[in-house]
Design a protein around this nucleic acid. Structure first.
Lengths: 199, 199
DNA sequence: GTCTATAGAAAGATAGAC
DNA sequence: GTCTATCTTTCTATAGAC
């Protein structure tokens, strides 16, 4: 039994293909990505990819699910007992001041796939769900903080939506411009909404 | 002399090619775009495109300039005399509640090109400049409103940056999800920053 | 399941006539 | 400047051996 693939309906080879696609997508971007590029990041041959997936589109749709799973696993990892601290950590993960390479790659792949939502309804539906789920997670954390009495005077739903939006704009700016003040601006705004200091 | 091309260094045919590329980009998206698709939206042949441009990349880089010019022309159009009203109109153009098809296409093309900034430094540099310029424009409008005494208690630079970020997140959400509350959230937040009612 | 080899289509780009 | 025709490369996907 492979720990990485348990319960996802993906075997080891499928996972290896998706990881190769992930790396190739970081390197080339969606527009320049070919099955050959995927194969170069994969220990087996190009044909093996077609044995496990019907088409290039099929691989990329599976990658979408794979990446979204990873994103939410990272987002909800290690929760403590202090509601305000948990909220702070959540916002910090949603709008990180800086990214280690691993997280930068995840954001890059997410954004590359998101950009396909402009022309492909399946992608659009998926990212609608992603953004809704982010809002729901933030909202639940805000509600817990309110119930504990430490955070007051905020509307959980509106606050969650605004934080999600700040995360989205920070991500877009970080990945598509050279300026990093956008991330700081978004972080400041997000923490201001909660009347919670950043550290 | 053609009014549309004056001072841009583009002839009629170059402009027609860029307009065709614009339409093809809306229809197919950057990843699926081919020179053939451009030619299908163009009255002349594929070879004519190569006579006027060195390569597909060359066409798309020219489109980038073309689209950015159009964006800023639209943004700074028709200024009135009331500083607060001008500011309201500016924010309304940056974060429109809804888009007519023409503006939706412009935003779509801008976003398709922006997504290339992840892998292409030239695009990244351009969008860095775009976002900076948007901030500068908003900042100048805010300063004018402050000088007139109607808007008070805001830092022009920070406010401008936040408004630009709200515009970016609204655009991303509008183009990549099915939910439209994101746009309302961004608009509300932007107008709140100025303590100016939306209408 | 994985390989090599290749079919078949589409891509970017050019040649040469007009 | 624009055309048709074509070159060359690259792409997606498959065939058939192992």
């Amino acid at each position: 039994m492979d720990g990485m693939t348990r319960g996802t309906g993906r075997g080891e080879t499928e996972t290896a293909i998706l990881e190769a696609t992930y790396r190739a997508l970081c390197e080339y971007g969606y527009a320049q990505l070919s099955v050959q590029h995927i194969a170069e990041n994969f220990e087996k041959s190009k044909s093996a990819i077609y044995y496990h997936y019907d088409s290039k589109d099929d691989v990329l749709l599976s990658l979408l699910d794979f990446v979204v799973e990873t994103f939410f696993e990272d987002l909800e990892a290690e929760t403590g007992t202090d509601p305000v601290e948990n909220l702070r950590l959540l916002v910090d993960r949603l709008v990180p001041a800086s990214l280690v390479e691993e997280d930068l790659d995840l954001h890059t792949v997410m954004f590359e796939l998101r950009s396909e939502a402009l022309t492909k309804p399946v992608y659009r539906t998926k990212f609608t769900e992603v953004d809704r789920t982010v809002c729901q997670i933030v909202e639940s954390y805000v509600r817990t903080a309110i119930d504990s009495g430490v955070v007051t005077g905020v509307d959980p739903e509106q606050t969650a939506r605004r934080i999600q939006q700040h995360a989205l704009s920070a991500q877009t700016a970080r990945l598509t411009t050279e300026d990093d003040w956008a991330v700081e601006t978004a972080r400041d705004a997000a923490f201001e909404l909660l009347d919670v200091p950043q550290d």
